[in-house]
Design a protein around this nucleic acid. Structure first.
Lengths: 151, 151
DNA sequence: CTGATAGTTAAACTAAGGTTGAGGTCAAGC
DNA sequence: GCTTGACCTCAACCTTAGTTTAACTATCAG
């Protein structure tokens, strides 16, 4: 194990990768995209402050929630720039995902329940049940699958 | 309105697009990817049987559930090739999404609840709470955010 | 028959979220 | 002081789910 940098308070890209489980290429990509920052050594190598680890954890967790990187970047911008973020700072920005997440859970549940409803007839949303509507009379109501899309 | 093709039992790509709300380019793409099929006229134009409308509805509904096209194609392969699928056929393949969907709802709920748990300390899954674990001692346990990923 | 509308193809392009490779540099251990 | 592994950049490539464009052909109403 070389380049431990463990006496210093900073970590290398390889260490950050090992600790976070995120490939170095992805970490460089995040930096290009403005999600994380690094100091450079005299030899142009990246050095990360330790709180970057938490930042990367926040990014990955947010991605697991289905949030696009651009949105994550914007929300990370709400953290204070002048000091190491506190627990309260992280708690505050975590709240940003709350309503989005609740909304998506509700949508999936609704879709699942409609799927259940329709399994009996196999209509799957396009024609409002072939039983009562044998030859897609719903075509008049405009394009798109109806039923599940509306409301 | 030209090319109604309504005397025939087949529909053109434009009609299918209008009825399904899916762009002709997407329908051709689905055909290249093996999700739908068409007959060709003597002039090389596509003609779809009417049940393609239901097939497309199934595709779009499945996509709304977050299923990738390749998976949808595989499941559509379970339909009978020799006859027009019945309601029972559609019901049967719809069941394929059931467990997947339930699973994803559970995962999102779990993530949401852990997010809630962690908002108090802002730890967000990487270090098992900075309160009891101030300097990421979890790094020994291998790469990747722990907590939310495990079990 | 003509003109408008609708259809055909292949290939290029998009966007997100990265990975891979070439060619070259840095830093640590012996 | 050299070797080796970790690092650097830049550009090209990957996947998914399509859209767009160019150049051309088919079909239909009148």
């Amino acid at each position: 194990m070389t380049q431990l940098a463990s006496t210093a308070r900073e970590i290398t890209v390889g260490e950050l990768a090992g600790r976070s489980g995120v490939a170095p290429s992805a970490l460089r990509f995040y930096e290009r995209e403005g999600l994380i920052r690094s100091r450079r050594t005299s030899g142009n190598q990246r050095r990360y402050s330790r709180d970057t680890l938490r930042r990367v954890a926040f990014i990955r967790t947010s991605q697991r929630l289905g949030i696009p990187l651009a949105t994550i970047r914007d929300v990370l911008g709400l953290l204070p720039e002048d000091r190491t973020p506190t627990r309260e700072d992280w708690a505050r920005i975590s709240e940003c995902w709350r309503s989005d997440l609740d909304e998506r859970i509700r949508t999936l549940q609704r879709l699942r329940d409609h799927l259940t409803d329709c399994i009996g007839c196999g209509c799957l949303s396009l024609d409002r049940c072939s039983l009562s509507n044998p030859d897609d009379a719903l075509a008049d109501h405009g394009p798109g699958p109806r039923r599940l899309l509306e409301e």
